[in-house]
Design a protein around this nucleic acid. Structure first.
Lengths: 362, 362
DNA sequence: CTGAAAGCGCTTACAG
DNA sequence: CTGAAAGCGCTTACAG
């Protein structure tokens, strides 16, 4: 480590002097009113003479006043902070994960809430810590597994909370997630409706299925069940994120379904990209020779070659809804039913971009 | 959106009743001491009779007491929260970004600080908001551009802060970053030392260079300058993250450097993976026919085929150091020089994994 | 070694 | 329509 330059230390003092924080007393003094008037003028919780309000607002602007967060928490019983427990597991796709984290932060800001980030290392202890110190008003869980240890903790704490994803035991919890079953059925129904008779599913890393994640198996099982129900040939294979593994998966599909006419991919972007490369190399045209659908993808499929039909993973909608439900539990403007623990499944949407085509019976 | 089930609402009440928060008064009562004794017993700021301390600790455990964060902030003038401004720009590689975010959070926890996440939408206004409301004790900046608008804001606010990355004007700022120049020189020196005479650099997405990011040009310029200085042939080309663009970049390199014997990649993981695939397809062996180095990569290169020599992007070290420097500004145990604004460059490290080989003169 | 009390900056009944 | 005052739960001089 090299200290390259010691540039001018215009600020050396320890605490933020120079830039002094104005208090409500300063505002009151400048505006020539009492502090309670300032407080009410800002909260709007009682009627204020127009002229008074204006003077207060001027003073606020002049002093760049912002209520002290600590005082507000202490008195207001509301911290306006939500904890986001966002473990990043090995098999979690980072870009997708990041999308959810940012979507939660954005949705929370719409209600004037900030997000405190809790990581893997501190999964349950961190949640417990911030909850018991009244640092946060509520808790959001990301990336939940079927037997997630954070679920019982949420029940124990009884704080406003929402889970993005669905653990096995949802008692007392508010959960939001894409309806993966319906998404799978949607893909199968469409393909079969178009006359496809041999449809394969290329899934995520095998580790994802073996372990904890709950939605990939949900998608897979619904896919296979629906294909069976409709009497078409079907086959599932996972794939790791490297060319060799992807090639192997395609070979396995070829072996199992010699007349393959449609492929659904529930996989990360690089994998989908590799598959398209391999198809191109083999001269297999999409959709003329093979219909392809990208399922529950968190990325834009219109950059792919070719652009793929997609049932998007609606991170924004899930996160927005999770925040809404947390706010409802906090008693903010909302339908009363939103405040009650329940599981909410988000309706999947099918977006056509031309990567599937009808098979006319030969 | 479908409401699937209304499972038992074991917690219906608005605020966290049932699970009542114990206050310092409760602890004092249970322990049979005054509240100041409780406070001192916990902070260790004055000596306490061993028996008293034990009774206090028992009471704390029994009540699962944790000091109220709001009260602590209000009085203690310390919130134990740092703001992390982490915009996610289009050209930013999400996995790398996530690595930094998590590393910052982890490092902060080592000092008992939490991380408040500020996003893109609110870049400067969010920083201003949390600073003026005294919600945070300090600020961390991620993903800074040369002319980042957050840099002058940090100067204005005068709060403890650290920047990960180096903006053009570093006056009054504390910045930490990998020494990209030295990393580039390290790669060139090694390759030239091994007898390579035609070394190419395959870089990031062209947008990254056109726009705001400051470190990719730093690496590129140092690379080209050092190659010139040592009198070897050199060529730079950016590459987008798709097979076509990567193939094009390799073609451009072939055209410019017909006798190419070494390739350095400062690019995302998928791009590096694609390059290796293409080399393999063309029968170019690494390192026998071509030496390859992965530069400033935030991922493990030993999963690649073949594993690549790498100068890692040390997210952990940068983030840990940034937190240390922020803590120093807050007056926590530290070298006095750490508290003064300065730029700190992290020494790059070269890790050999066998993807370069000496060229014996023909 | 310990306690009583002031005060951090707010919000919100209570009075007028 | 507005103000004086209590009190949220801590920390930290001040006293003993």
């Amino acid at each position: 480590m090299t200290v390259q330059s010691n540039n001018d230390g215009s600020t050396g003092e320890q605490r933020d002097d120079g830039v002094t924080m104005a208090s409500i007393h300063d505002v009151a003094r400048v505006a020539g009113v009492s502090i309670s008037t300032v407080s009410y003028a800002l909260s709007g919780k009682r009627s204020i003479a127009e002229s008074t309000r204006r003077r207060v607002e001027d003073a606020v602007r002049q002093l760049d006043y912002r209520p002290n967060a600590g005082a507000r928490m202490l008195k207001g019983a509301r911290t306006n902070i939500l904890a986001l427990s966002a473990p990043l597991h090995a098999a979690t796709h980072a870009p997708a994960h990041m999308t959810f984290v940012l979507a939660v932060a954005r949705a929370a800001r719409a209600y004037d809430f900030d997000i405190l980030l809790l990581t893997q290392d501190e999964a349950t202890s961190g949640i417990r810590r911030v909850a018991r110190s009244s640092l946060v008003d509520g808790i959001l869980l990301l990336d939940v597994s079927s037997d997630d240890e954070r679920a019982p903790l949420l029940r124990e704490l009884g704080l406003p909370a929402a889970v993005i994803g669905i653990p096995d035991d949802v008692t007392g919890l508010t959960c939001v997630d894409l309806d993966f079953e319906k998404a799978a059925q949607m893909c199968v129904t469409r393909l079969v409706g178009q006359g496809h008779r041999q449809i394969a599913l290329l899934g995520q890393d095998p580790a994802v299925y073996e372990r904890r994640s709950n939605f990939p198996p949900r998608f897979r099982d619904a896919f296979l069940a629906e294909a069976d129900r409709l009497g078409v040939g079907t086959f599932f294979t996972p794939a790791k994120e490297d060319t060799a593994s992807v090639a192997e998966a395609l070979a396995a599909i070829d072996g199992a379904l010699p007349g393959l006419d449609a492929l659904v991919m529930h996989a990360n972007e690089p994998v989908q990209s590799m598959v398209l490369d391999l198809l191109r190399q083999r001269g297999i045209r999409v959709p003329q020779d093979l219909s392809v659908i990208s399922a529950c993808s968190s990325f834009d499929t219109d950059h792919l070659h070719p652009a793929l039909d997609v049932v998007p993973l609606p991170a924004d909608r899930s996160c927005t809804r999770a925040i809404e439900l947390t706010m409802a539990q906090l008693g903010t403007r909302s339908a009363p039913s939103d405040a009650v623990p329940h599981v909410e499944l988000i309706e999947p949407e099918y977006i056509e971009l031309g990567s599937t085509a009808s098979r006319t019976p030969a």
